[in-house]
Computed example of a mutant assay.
Amino acid sequence: MHAEHLHLWQHNHVFGQEQRRPGEQRTLIVIAITAAMMVIEIGTGLLFGSMALLADGLHMASHAAALGIAAFAYIYARKHAKNTDFSFGTGKVNALAGFSGAILLVIFALIMAWESLARMLDPVSIAFDQAIAVAVIGLIVNGASVLILGAEHGHEHGHEHHGEHGHAHHQDHNLHSAYLHVLADALTSLLAIFALLTGKYFGWVLMDPLMGIVGAVLVARWSWRLLETTSAVLVDRQGPETIRSKIRTAIEQDSQDRVSDLHLWSIGPDMYAAAISVVSHDPKSPLEIKKLLPSHCGLAHVTVEINPCCTQGAHT
């Protein structure tokens, strides 16, 4: 074979990662909103003595950093999509950013819990009216951020598939991380308002740090879920059983071909790579096997190995 003809059997590993993802522009908008509100809430939380308000501001600080990571991941994955140093493209940058964001969520949940416990042991006076006003503004800002990211996030969840471990495999983990951050912000703002109102009208001053602890627990639970799904992608855990079953069925039905080995792993949002070994008495070509595979399962890169099966081997 002449070298000039080799390109007919070669292909790139970009898999659409050079295109701007829908969540990128939304994330940049939310970063600007979050950073501005973060400065206001941290400053007023310190000024008015509200732990719930300060926790909300610190939470926003973590989310501004996490959203920055998300935006960087979108841009980096797009700019380096054609870099051949990435064996299967830059799709996993998305999961790496989501994993990093989840770790930040855990860290700031611990900080919130620690500061809340400290305020329980050593209460401080709270300027309730001013703190409530700022918390309401924070809730409005956070609600707007949830709406900005929420439409695209809902679209992603509408296309999820769950494997045998119950984890979501078919989503933009970067966008999911950003959405969880702004949702957690909205929750902590709501808890802050509730705590401040009960403190003002019922004298339940301890409700303020207690809501900080409640918020920390809820955020930690969300972050754990995200850590599970993103780590599964980063360590190349087997893809969903539903897709693997469809692959086996497509190859084995109406033939004596049998799938002897199948590896399926995520290489990016909505994208999977597969390595398939087929044993057959009447071997087909790899191209024929590939034509049998389902087209709606996100199989972006497929390698097929054909193994002829001798009669003696069939009976062993």
Score class of each variant (00 low, 15 high):
209 P>T: 06
275 A>I: 05
214 V>H: 12
304 V>P: 01
245 S>N: 13
300 A>D: 01
270 D>W: 13
3 A>E: 15
56 D>V: 06
252 E>K: 07
212 G>P: 03
289 I>R: 06
35 A>V: 15
4 E>L: 13
11 H>P: 06
259 V>W: 00
280 S>W: 02
6 L>A: 15
23 G>E: 11
70 A>E: 08
17 Q>V: 10
294 P>D: 00
11 H>A: 13
40 I>P: 13
67 L>M: 04
293 L>M: 00
238 Q>S: 10
33 I>W: 12
100 S>P: 02
34 T>F: 08
210 L>Q: 05
36 A>M: 10
185 D>Q: 11
209 P>A: 08
188 T>I: 15
284 K>C: 05
296 H>A: 04
16 G>D: 11
194 F>S: 11
84 T>M: 12
71 A>M: 09
118 A>W: 01
265 W>M: 12
194 F>A: 14
243 I>Y: 06
26 R>D: 14
175 L>A: 11
191 L>T: 09
113 A>E: 00
141 V>M: 13
7 H>L: 11
229 T>S: 08
108 F>M: 10
43 G>E: 07
252 E>S: 03
10 Q>P: 07
99 F>E: 02
189 S>I: 09
75 I>M: 14
129 D>S: 04
206 L>G: 03
215 G>I: 12
87 S>A: 13
178 A>W: 04
289 I>C: 07
312 Q>K: 01
168 A>E: 05
140 I>C: 07
167 H>R: 12
130 Q>E: 14
263 H>I: 05
89 G>T: 09
62 S>R: 07
291 K>E: 14
92 K>I: 09
